[in-house]
Structures are given as structure tokens and as C-alpha cells.
Design a protein around this nucleic acid. Sequence first.
DNA 1: CTTCAGATGCTCT
DNA 2: GAGCATCTGAAGA
Length: 196
Amino acid sequence: MEKLTRDFYGRDTLTVARELLGKYLVRVVDGRALTVRLTETEAYIGRLDKACHAYNYKRTKRTETLFAPPGTAYLYLIYGMYTCLNLVTEAEGEPAAVLIRAGEPVTQVDADAISVKRFGCTVAQMSGYQRKNFLNGPGKLCKGLSLTTAQNGLSLLGEELYVLDSGERPQKIHVGKRIGIDYAEEAADFPWRFYL
DNA sequence: CTTCAGATGCTCT
DNA sequence: GAGCATCTGAAGA
């Protein structure tokens, strides 16, 4: 499978957010690759989006990563204890990114390795509730893949964190409002959330 | 199934 | 000092 190139990320954010669905996010940690099929994304576009940290090109220490070249990982801490993973998009200097909201392990081996990181036990020992809500949120996905703000600014063209084209071309993509941004006035209603 | 409170720390004003 | 792109466990329907 081919690793996505900078050209893939350096396009319209809504397009990238849609096309990421069904692709494989790979996180290499402790000498092994953890692979997750992406099932839910959201677009954030600084140029016109009050929900984006870099709305109106606001440049601060935190948003600096959003101005990096497309194909850079933007990670930040939310609510004091959870990390969110975003992939920087558009031409360099256009602050925009796709939030990775959810995914699912590709193989049983991935599932077991991730469950150890999430819950400290194997899949077989997980509760039914835990199994059903395994990686269905940005904080959970980061926890399962050992992603923290230490990975902020990491290139997706490297060997530690990247996305593979699985070849899947989803027939039906669901669209909806983004989650948890009620403060963002009219932008709160933008249909910029995509899921399988 | 649902709601609800609390956790917890960084960033920006 | 306020607010936040969230999650969990407990309790109730």
C-alpha cells in the first residue's frame, strides 16, 4: 500500500477529510506498527471557521503547527487530559487541518496491542461497553495509539506516523455537524463532519 | 438506553 | 482567571 504524499494533504480540507475515510492510519511505537482504519473525520479551516484554533489566521504558540506544510501532525491537549490528532492540509500558510475523530483496528493483533495501551488488558478481557466504544472519539484514539503532544509537528511523510491508501473507496459517506463546538456561532452548524 | 458531574492542565486574555 | 475540537463511571428510566 502506498503512503499518502504531501500532494494528498495539500488540497481542499473538505476533500481531504472525505478521502481519509477508509484509509489506514499507521502509528509505529515500541518497534511495531499499529494500524487503524479511519471512520470519522472533521474539517477545520482557519480562513473562515470560528471553530478553528487559527480562525482568521490567528497565530499563537499553539496554532503555529497549523501553518506548517501540509502533511504535518497537529496535536494538542484538550480538557486538561486528552489529546486530539489533526492532519494539516491546504497550501503551506493556510491554517487548516482534519481532526481524526474515530477509527477501528484493522487486525486482531492491532486490536490487542491497542487495548493494552487503552485499558491495560487484551480485547478478550474488555467489557462489552469498552468493545463497542473502542476508538470512537479523538481522545480514545490518541490514547490507544500512544499519541501525545510530544508528537506535535511530526511529519506524516516519515516513519513514525503516516497514512496508507488502503484502496477502499467508500460508497456512502455520512455528513453532519461537528461535535463539541457550540461556542462557534454559525460555524457550529457547518456540515464538516464525515463518517462511514 | 439516557443524563450528569467531575476530572485536570495548558493556552490565551 | 476562563474556557476548552473529551471521557468515564454512576445512577436512573
